[in-house]
Amino acid sequence: MKKNKITVVTPVLNQAQFIEQTIDSVLSQGIEDLEYIILDAGSTDGTVDIIKKHERHLARWRSHKDAGQSSAIHEGFSSASGDLLCWINSDDYFEPGALKRMIGMFDNDEQLDLCYGDYSILLPDGTKEAKLKISFDFEIALLFYLMIPQPSSVWTKRLYDSVGGLDTALNYSFDYDFFLRAGQRLQARPDAIRHVHDLVSVFRIHPESKSVSAQAKFVSENESIMRKFDNFPTWKRSSFYRRYQMVRTLLRYHSERGMVPTRKDTRKA
Rank of each mutant, 00 (worst) to 15 (best):
M1L: 07
K3D: 00
K3N: 01
K3G: 02
N4H: 06
T7W: 03
V8C: 04
V9I: 12
L13N: 11
L13Y: 14
Q15E: 01
Q15Y: 01
A16P: 00
A16R: 01
Q21C: 05
D24N: 08
D24I: 04
L27E: 03
Q29R: 06
Q29K: 05
G30T: 06
D33F: 02
L34D: 00
I37N: 05
I38D: 04
L39Q: 07
G42D: 10
T44E: 09
T44L: 04
T47P: 07
V48H: 12
V48N: 13
I51L: 08
I51R: 13
H54A: 10
H57A: 13
H57L: 13
L58G: 08
R62S: 15
S63Q: 12
S63K: 15
H64N: 13
D66C: 13
D66I: 12
Q69L: 14
I73R: 06
I73G: 04
H74M: 14
H74R: 14
E75M: 15
E75Q: 14
F77N: 13
S78I: 08
A80G: 07
L84S: 00
L85I: 00
C86T: 03
W87C: 14
N89H: 02
N89Q: 04
N89M: 04
P96S: 00
G97A: 03
G97H: 00
A98F: 05
A98K: 08
L99S: 07
L99V: 01
M102S: 01
I103T: 00
D107R: 13
D109N: 10
D109F: 11
L114W: 02
C115S: 11
Y119G: 11
Y119I: 00
Y119D: 15
I121D: 03
L123H: 12
T127D: 08
T127A: 11
T127L: 11
E129D: 12
E129G: 11
A130E: 09
L132S: 08
A141W: 02
A141E: 03
L142C: 01
L142K: 02
L143K: 10
F144I: 03
Y145R: 15
M147Q: 07
I148Y: 05
P149I: 00
Q150Y: 06
P151W: 01
V154H: 03
V154C: 04
R158A: 12
L159D: 05
S162M: 08
L166S: 11
D167W: 12
A169R: 15
N171G: 07
F174S: 03
D175F: 01
F179M: 10
Q184E: 10
Q184M: 11
R189G: 15
R189F: 14
I193T: 04
I193R: 07
H195D: 08
H197K: 14
H197S: 08
D198E: 06
D198T: 02
L199P: 01
R204M: 09
I205L: 09
H206C: 05
E208V: 10
E208S: 13
K210H: 12
Q215S: 06
K217D: 06
S220G: 07
S220E: 13
N222Y: 10
N222M: 08
K228I: 03
D230L: 14
N231H: 15
T234P: 15
T234N: 14
T234R: 15
S238G: 13
R242S: 05
R243A: 15
R243G: 11
V247D: 09
V247Y: 12
R248S: 12
L251Q: 11
H254V: 09
H254M: 13
H254Y: 15
G258V: 00
G258S: 02
M259G: 08
P261V: 01
D265T: 04
D265M: 05
R267D: 03
